[in-house]
Simulated assay, not measured.
Amino acid sequence: MQYGFIIPRGNVHEILELTQEAEEAGWDGVFYWDGINIEVVGEMYDPWAVLAAMAVRTNRVRIGAMLTPPSRRRPWKLARETVTVDHLSHGRLVVPVGLGALDDGGFGKVGEVTERKERAQLMDESLDILTGLWSGQPFSYHGQHYQLEEMTFLPPPAQQPRIPIWVVGAWPAQKSMQRVLKYDGLLPTAAAPGEHGNLKPDDIRAMRAYIEQNRTSTTPFDIIWEGETPGDNRAQAAEIVKPYIDSGITWWMESRWLTPDLDVIRTRIRQGPPRIV
């Protein structure tokens, strides 16, 4: 069982300070997020520049951005960015992906695709291209949206057989869950709009059973869940986390998206992860 912390805000120097504090406090992963322009948030930074800095300021923790929408990232550029950060971190990068939040002006305000079905198609093709270019072998691609003449991208990632990809899976949508089976981790959500917060441990248990029954790969697979725990009450934190651990998650992500006070976030980081002894 591993525990990560998502840093939701702060200027770029504060983000790096919090990253180092999280590693020192015993968290297993430190994550930023991928956004272009969300006006209510205020200060935002390019995730790949931030992750590169996080990579060289830490030694142990997993790093990544929660999460990247491949539909608005050129997959060959994303391949270069991810491999670079993977090498800088000596193989500690994770790539969480999903359709993305449309309240980001990086979609509708700049003419990117917003229709759900087409974003899903772009994500599937982008992941095919990403993993193909990561191979370090000659690769070409002919899809509905992307056409690539043969290219070889070197170096390949530090991690082999590839950088882990965590994919949003909407339960119980078969197409969404079948996509998850091809990769290395599940970010659970509900298929019905607005129902993500209503997923319960029993839903996670059902998703885990589906993956165990249908996934053919024998490589490691993670199930990731976000939530909040009190850092000053270990017993209460354990009560919150334990049902999800029992349901099959392998990562608990401490997320404070709505916490405006950076000092509160820093205090929670310093208190360390809600490990169950």
Rank of each mutant, 00 (worst) to 15 (best):
Q2T: 10
F5D: 01
T19F: 03
E24P: 00
G29H: 06
D34I: 02
V40H: 14
Y45S: 01
Y45H: 14
A49Q: 12
V56E: 14
R57A: 14
T58I: 10
R60T: 13
A65R: 04
A65D: 04
A65K: 07
L67F: 09
S71A: 15
P75M: 11
W76A: 14
K77N: 13
L78A: 12
A79F: 11
R80G: 07
V85R: 09
H87P: 11
L88M: 15
R92F: 12
V97F: 08
A101C: 05
A101E: 15
L102M: 05
K109G: 06
V110C: 03
G111Y: 04
M123N: 11
T131S: 08
S135H: 07
G136R: 06
P138Y: 03
S140A: 15
G143Y: 10
Q144N: 10
L148N: 12
E149I: 10
E149L: 12
M151T: 12
T152G: 11
F153C: 08
F153H: 14
W166T: 06
A170I: 00
V180E: 03
D184H: 10
P188H: 05
P193E: 05
P201K: 02
M207S: 05
R208A: 07
E212F: 02
E212G: 01
N214F: 01
S217P: 09
D222T: 06
D222Q: 10
I224N: 03
W225Y: 09
R234I: 03
Q236G: 00
A238Q: 12
A238P: 00
I240W: 05
Y244D: 01
G248W: 08
I249G: 02
W252N: 03
M253F: 13
W257A: 12
L258R: 13
L262P: 01
D263R: 12
D263Q: 14
I265K: 05
R266I: 08
I269V: 14
P274D: 07
I276A: 07
V277N: 15
